[in-house]
């Protein structure tokens, strides 16, 4: 068996006085698709922020693509071919679609030579972005912005892609397009970690899934297993 793309052991992290993660363990096989689900406030976004170096890891180990990440800055982590699609898209609103995409590669010496090829892949994945190449990102619709955010992360030529709540604020039809694209990205060999509140759809896509609750993994299994589990519903609505 090949080395896992992501190994997390006993991860603890938080903001200031607030500790959010209380010892998270994960192992994601290379090329597989992991869904992280959980109620609001369970720590999903915090987990991704800790993995991408946006907040410090207080305790525990994180290895991505065989490399320890703890103590590395966000810039160092992305150079290690770990891409991040942040929650709420966070585009450069005054740049065009094309400029936003290129910004994903421009500051990464390793990704720059492959920018042409990767841009073509992004346009293949999201044909709509090719049509809007010259449009200012601030004027895009929510769904298009999400496509740009995912595209920008792909421009960094990642082997591991961390995606935070891509369906947030999208209509069901647009969310569906985005999920389809994520499935395609995974099928091309990129390991995907997806944090989502749309439980149905993300569990359908995922090879493996975990349920986070109060900052720790409550349940794990294949996507199909968790989808069938009544406790998952209960965890969300506290019935």
């Amino acid at each position: 068996m090949t080395e896992p793309a992501l190994v997390v052991r006993g991860l603890e992290a938080g903001y200031g006085k607030i500790q959010v993660l209380w010892g998270v363990d994960l192992e994601v096989a290379a090329g597989s698709f992991l869904a992280v689900i959980g109620a609001n406030g369970a720590g999903k976004t915090t987990l991704l922020r800790a993995l991408t170096g946006l907040i410090p890891v207080r305790r525990g180990e994180v290895h991505a693509l065989g490399r320890p990440l703890r103590g590395l800055s966000a810039a160092q982590i992305v150079r290690g071919r770990v891409g991040h699609v942040p929650e709420g898209r966070q585009l450069f609103p005054l740049m065009t679609v094309r400029e936003n995409l290129d910004a994903g590669a421009d500051y990464l010496p390793a990704a720059r030579p492959r920018a042409e090829r990767n841009r073509a892949l992004v346009y293949e994945l999201f044909p709509r972005l090719r049509e809007r190449e010259g449009q200012i990102a601030g004027t895009l619709s929510g769904g298009e912005r999400q496509m740009v955010a995912i595209g920008r992360a792909l421009m960094s030529d990642p082997k591991l892609l961390l995606v935070d709540e891509p369906s947030l604020g999208l209509s069901p039809a647009l969310a569906s397009d985005v999920f389809t694209a994520l499935g395609q990205i995974a099928s091309e060999g990129v390991t995907v970690v997806l944090v989502e509140q749309n439980v149905q759809r993300s569990l359908q896509l995922a090879d493996q899934a975990v349920v986070l609750e109060h900052g720790a993994v409550r349940q794990r299994g294949t996507g199909a297993e968790l989808l069938a589990d009544p406790a998952v519903r209960a965890a969300y609505l506290s019935l």
């Binding site: 500790q19 305790r59 609750e213 109060h214 720790a216 506290s238 019935l239």
Partner: peptide
């Protein structure tokens, strides 16, 4: 709250919500 500054006191484990 900083568990690290209080080596003697292990942090309270995240409790399961009632009901489930």
């Amino acid at each position: 709250d900083e568990g690290a500054s209080e080596p003697g006191a292990p942090p309270e484990p995240p409790a399961r919500p009632g009901g489930t």
